Simulated scan of single mutants.
Amino acid sequence: MPLIKLGVEGKTRFSRGDTFLHNVISGNHSMRVLPAAIIGVAILLASTIWVFVPMLLQEEEFFDGPAIDSGARIEIEMLNQQVEDLRERVDTLTQEVARVSARAAAGNRQVFQAPDVDDSQPFRQSGPNDIIDAYAQVVLIADRRNVNEGLTIAGSRWLGNTFGLPRQDLDQTCREMTNQRLASKLRTQNVGPIKVRMLQPAIDSLTRVFEKVRATDPDLYARISTAGSLCVRAIRGTTNRASTHSYGLAVDLNIDGKLDTLGDGKTQLGLTILADFFKEEGWVWGASWRREDSMHFEVSRQKLEQWVRDGVL
């Protein structure tokens, strides 16, 4: 029975040393910065223990006689001494890791230390702001045929069948709206950064668009200009068809008052950003048309059908 106690005690003492070794080597996040040579030493020592301990702790040897009992005790004590030696080495390595980490942290502070700033002085831009100044930059419209995916235009035929013509005697000159159903909802109003004359539901919708733009990108919001909204006249080449502009359901926008070139497949960068806000609100962007008109934004058919169902038009 004393033989069994020696075996259990030896196993317990080794298990504690092994647990300590595992926690130090595997659990210390500082080891990430340890040089490769130091890591190799630790792994070599751990491997030695894992190889020889099973040979020393085989239970059948403990029951072979008194001589094996004494030998086991000696081997276990020697192993414990090795574990203590390893613990000291690991402590030394841990201290080395701490020194390396401290040097690395000090180096990072020197590299990334922010300069002193005099908060009493107002900020002044020392040169052009590349982001803000890019809003008016002309760029190609990426995948422009699909920018209105999920939305469709109302079209002059649908508009005429649903609301009637905005006025009966259409020509190429912009005139007043005489359609009473629509004219009663016509308003002139400041909407965000621009002033428009449109139907009230369209003004309300446009207000939501600009409010989101203002909250998200105030620099872009401040540079939005308009090239017009309501213009009651016939579509060129026709005498009885009217566009969404004639119904007070469209607006032309630009950045900094610079007009876009019609039909070149390009637009101002700021308009490509605005297009996302308009699409979310249910407006169609004229960039997708065969003859690209990227300044043009109009209420989609889906949105108009909803307004009709809701009784606002």
Rank of each mutant, 00 (worst) to 15 (best):
R32E: 09
V117E: 08
E61T: 05
E96W: 10
D310E: 15
L34Y: 14
F297A: 04
T188Q: 04
I39G: 15
E9T: 01
F112S: 03
R236I: 12
G40N: 05
R157V: 03
C231K: 03
E298R: 13
Q180H: 10
A102Y: 05
G160Y: 08
I43G: 04
I38Q: 15
L165G: 04
V100C: 02
S47A: 09
V196K: 04
E149M: 05
Q306F: 08
V284E: 11
L93K: 13
F63G: 02
R32Q: 12
D204R: 10
Y221C: 01
L253W: 12
I141A: 02
L57E: 04
V138G: 07
L44I: 10
H245D: 09
G127R: 13
D276K: 02
I25Y: 04
Q125A: 13
F20K: 11
G257S: 12
T19L: 08
Q58H: 06
M1G: 02
F123V: 05
V139W: 00
S120G: 08
Q200R: 13
R236Q: 10
L34H: 15
A114Q: 15
A46F: 11
T48N: 15
E176D: 10
L304V: 12
P218L: 00
A36I: 10
G27E: 11
E84Y: 01
D264Q: 03
T173N: 11
Q110D: 08
D69S: 09
T12N: 05
C231P: 10
L182G: 14
I76M: 03
A227G: 15
D169N: 03
Y221I: 00
F20Y: 15
E60L: 02
D64N: 13
G265F: 01
N108E: 03
T178R: 07
F210E: 01
N108D: 12
A234L: 00
V213Y: 00
S243K: 06
L86R: 12
G40K: 11
D133V: 02
S288I: 02
S120W: 09
S225R: 15
M198V: 11
R214S: 08
L140G: 06
D276P: 01
T216N: 09
R214D: 02
P115Q: 13
Q110A: 05
M177D: 14
I224E: 00
K303D: 02
N28A: 08
A67F: 14
Q180I: 04
Q137D: 10
F52Y: 06
V299C: 03
F297Y: 14
W289F: 14
A215W: 12
V51E: 05
F14P: 00
R103A: 13
Q137A: 07
R144K: 04
S126R: 10
K195A: 13
A154N: 07
S26E: 07
F20G: 03
T226C: 06
A42M: 15
R181H: 02
V213R: 00
V209Q: 09
D256V: 00
R13W: 08
Q306V: 03
G237F: 01
R241E: 09
D18S: 09
G265P: 05
W283S: 00
D116E: 11
L151N: 04
I74W: 15
N240V: 02
P54K: 04
Q95Y: 13
T239P: 01
D69R: 10
I76T: 06
G282V: 01
M55Y: 02
G155V: 11
A114D: 04
G257E: 12
V147E: 07
R167D: 05
A105S: 12
I76L: 10
